[in-house]
Nucleic acid binder design. Structure first.
Lengths: 337, 337
DNA sequence: CTGAAAGCGCTTACAG
DNA sequence: CTGAAAGCGCTTACAG
């Protein structure tokens, strides 16, 4: 146990109110002599404030909850790091929670974070469904949504990625390189994210006067296995193609695996573009061009926005920050036609 | 704001003490009628306890700090997940902190966690040096060290990996496959981890009557660039070899890159074994056999041990848990000689 | 079996 | 410029 404010007050022969004010820098109106004496005593005894006591009266904990599906999914560490960096800069801490996409877990963590009196929550609701998140509806805390947009009245802000534009830029890149028959292996299809990415794909095609064909598109899940399987289906169906746009990098890895097994070279024979740019992309598949999601920034900006909402007491806020993707072109040895 | 204990007491016409006891299940001696009435009211008003108030008197927050170098380093998410899973099972939360191997950051976070009154700290001090961690010396909180062993009186336990045995098993595997001239590209050399891994390498050699040669071993850092560079040096020096044991997987990736550039096939020509088994190993380099560190388990066991220390008030504890590695053999197509 | 009371360490009007 | 006092919501001896 560290020394308390009361003990400092006794040593300095002042009241606890004075000590409190000095320690909190609300001391415009306090004599220099008093201030110095108090500060000296606090330093000497290595005073550490008791946040529980402070929180009890201020109703602030300087703690933020970060709810996400799974930190071991390589998609999330960057977000977590961005969030923690901004939090730490602003003297907040982050409590992190893994939900494994389970609504029950989400609810449970929202309850726990409420008990812990966190000041707000950064929430990555990554379930495939667009239905309501029941936990969110009950939640009394300010929430910033990340990555996936979602309608809910408790949400005070969102930080998302411009999926339509990202997808557009990836597909346009393929077209500029001379590819024309571009398959699309999507992950989910019902979510807004998936719809936006598909829209970008279509816009790139149409602006380049390429017809959109239904049978060039397959949707499944954001997993490597799906990329592998979907690619296999396309090959079986003998659909002519010269390139593949994938809903995320994992799908791309699966597709590339299948393509390589079938004897294709990447990208000399077949151009492949993924989405997300998870950590392994550059190490694992130097041929994979990727539409990179700014995940670090997403975490960072989300915390920034939350703190803004908290400190301005701007509880009616409903900001939406849309981040741009970046096209990371790797080893595209194919020449322009 | 949720309802308070006082309001429940008023509604139920009992004292707050009674309500508190019932809610905390310290109610062996309380009448069923009273209990049911209180519980019903609490449920009806969706009572959520205020942890700050509780912590103030119990001096417990049910929160644990996790200090590690960097969650975006693929080594750490598994640890973090294991820790969070165990914490969550036992109704604890985890505050996570990234230090970037900086002692200043470590100290800063220890101070913050002390203010936040976490019950204890899981600490991955990953600096290369074996010198003191000044933050740890000042720290008043119980600390469990993970991954790297380290002497300090505030440490109440450690969860580490049997590096000597792991290294021994990896090198033995190479020998069993018929390789005899085994290079060793180490990361750091001064740390205990590095020394243990070297010791395991030597023991495997000696048990198989293979001479240890100084010039077969190079040490640098745990980075891909170092693996690439060291492999280049070995090639330049024209040292005869048939396999490489690497201090970690990243080094192995670098070494493999150089080997492939030099025209070798893995593992047909050259056997390579890494250490750690970071996430990408299996996806990226299917030829890479790895001594896998049980990182998830490390996080899990560390929190388990910490909670044990906390709840048994066993503050004199100095447990050391040594986890075994697991050899993950991938695509070892080389035949036994 | 239950209640009255003290107290955890702090902040915040308010009075002077 | 500073102090006395109330109170945040809870738990814990203690008394009955």
């Amino acid at each position: 146990m560290s020394i308390t404010i009361k003990e400092i007050a006794k040593l300095a022969q002042v009241s606890t109110a004075t000590v409190s004010m000095i320690l909190n820098k609300k001391d415009q109106c306090i004599g220099d002599a008093t201030r110095e004496k108090v500060l000296a005593i606090a330093a000497e005894h290595h005073y550490i404030p008791n946040n529980a006591a402070r929180s009890l009266v201020t109703r602030k904990t300087n703690t933020i909850g970060l709810i996400m599906p799974d930190i071991t999914n390589p998609f999330f560490p960057e977000i977590a790091r961005g969030a923690e960096d901004k939090a730490s800069e602003s003297r907040y801490s982050i409590i992190f929670c893994n939900t494994d996409d389970s609504e029950r877990q989400e609810e449970k963590y929202i309850d726990i974070l409420t008990e812990k009196m966190v000041d707000g929550i950064i929430f990555a609701h990554a379930a495939e469904s667009e239905e309501g998140c029941s936990g969110l509806n009950k939640c009394k805390l300010p929430v910033i949504l990340i990555d996936r947009d979602y309608n809910n009245e408790n949400v005070k802000g969102r930080v998302v990625v411009d999926n339509e534009k990202g997808s557009y830029s990836g597909v346009s890149h393929l077209i500029k390189q001379g590819y024309r028959k571009i398959l699309y292996i999507a992950g989910a299809i019902k979510t807004q994210t998936a719809k936006d990415r598909l829209a970008g794909y279509r816009r790139a095609l149409s602006e380049n006067l390429i017809d959109y064909k239904d049978y060039y598109v397959k949707s499944g899940s954001y997993r490597r296995e799906w990329g592998y399987e979907a690619m296999g289906q396309f090959l079986n169906e003998n659909i002519p193609f010269d390139s593949v746009f994938c809903g995320n990098d994992l799908i791309a890895f699966g597709a590339i695996k299948k393509l390589k097994e079938a004897g294709y070279r990447i990208p000399e024979d077949i151009g492949v573009v993924g989405f997300d740019d998870i950590y392994v992309s550059s190490m694992m598949e130097p041929a994979l061009t990727t539409v990179k999601q700014p995940n670090y920034e997403m975490g960072y900006r989300a915390v920034e926005l939350l703190i803004d909402v908290l400190e301005k007491k701007n509880l009616e806020s409903n900001h939406k920050i849309v981040l741009d993707t970046e096209l990371v072109v790797r080893n595209s040895t194919r020449l322009l036609k």
